[in-house]
Simulated assay, not measured.
Amino acid sequence: MVQGCENVRPALRRAPRVSYRWVDPETVLQEAGTLGVFGFGTGAVRSEDPRWLGVDLESFDAPTPLEIWQVDGSVTHGRAGDVQWSRGDGWLFAAITLDEATHGGPRDTAVTAYAQLCDFVASRRECHVQRIWNYLGDINQGDGDVERYKQFCEGRADGMGRFFADGFPAATAIGHHAPAMRLQVYLLACDEPGERVENPRQVSAWQYPRQYGRIAPTFARAMTLPGQDVLAISGTAAVVGHASAHQDDLLAQLDETLVNLESLLVSAGMPAGFDTQSPLKVYVRHPTDAPLVHDFLQRRLPGVPVLALHGDICRSELLVEIDGWRYA
């Protein structure tokens, strides 16, 4: 257990409700219970509110909806150093955006980002991290151990130290194409621990062999949130065991990814399939593939809210990745 982080008596509460909506951010920020609002790409309307985060990933959807997190009860918010945060009903949103130009490249920037976030969360009642998102520029640049993603993984591990000694949260790491080489990390935490979920079809990420870097990626495949049957799903791609599958075959990778998602649902004891209340994000490496991905998901996941974003997957041979939520 993280030092200073104590379990509280379980409360009957709902997990944050996640939705995609076409609305002005200031309008939704005035709604009761708004914990976080996310805009995507250069066209997103900005806000100075700490609950707002402009994500450095362009959307293939026009107009692009906002992603909105809402909880029951009142929400407070503020800033602490480089960290922006909000909290309400036992849940915490925290985010940090750092420019590599002033923090020394992907490794050192990740060290700083994770050290600040972990220090901040450890001081809060909502100290059990459930889910993390990581977005960094040129994620596949460099060969071998100097690849930017592998450097990020080393810095992340150093920055978090022993904070996740009891187990890692669910997570996503995607490369963006914004002009500024910024690292964006944001998270959802709670005052109760969740339950980690692994996929029997895949080697746990932290047990990957040496070929994937000096430090293996540190995340769980999914997390069942406390208090309810809600599954927060990590970035999921066409990985079987620890190996990438179906190189250069987009449709086969999409099909394998859906098999992995269904396997996660079984492991978590969730109902099969996704529905209109289970929003997903799909990250697509090549913009020219976006229409094919859209048609595939419309056919295979009819009615499911899907936000399609231009992002590079952490392995250069992977063309697509999906993360999101499953509400029972």
Rank of each mutant, 00 (worst) to 15 (best):
H103S: 08
H103F: 07
H103P: 01
G105E: 01
G105S: 01
D108P: 05
T109F: 00
T109V: 00
A110C: 03
A110W: 04
V111N: 04
V111S: 06
T112F: 10
T112P: 04
Y114L: 10
A115V: 08
A115H: 15
A115K: 12
Q116A: 14
L117K: 03
C118M: 15
V121Y: 04
A122H: 03
S123M: 09
R125V: 11
R131W: 15
I132S: 07
W133C: 11
Y135F: 14
D138K: 12
D138I: 06
D138C: 07
I139R: 04
N140H: 05
D143A: 15
D143G: 11
D145K: 08
V146H: 13
E147R: 15
Q151K: 05
F152D: 02
F152M: 07
C153G: 08
G155H: 01
A157Q: 08
D158E: 15
M160H: 12
G161N: 03
G161K: 03
F163H: 03
A165P: 02
F168E: 11
F168L: 12
P169T: 05
P169M: 02
A170D: 06
A171P: 00
A171S: 12
A171N: 03
G175V: 02
H177G: 08
A180T: 14
M181C: 13
R182F: 08
Q184S: 15
V185G: 03
L188A: 13
A189P: 02
D191T: 03
D191H: 07
G194V: 07
V197A: 02
E198R: 09
P200I: 09
V203R: 15
S204H: 14
A205P: 08
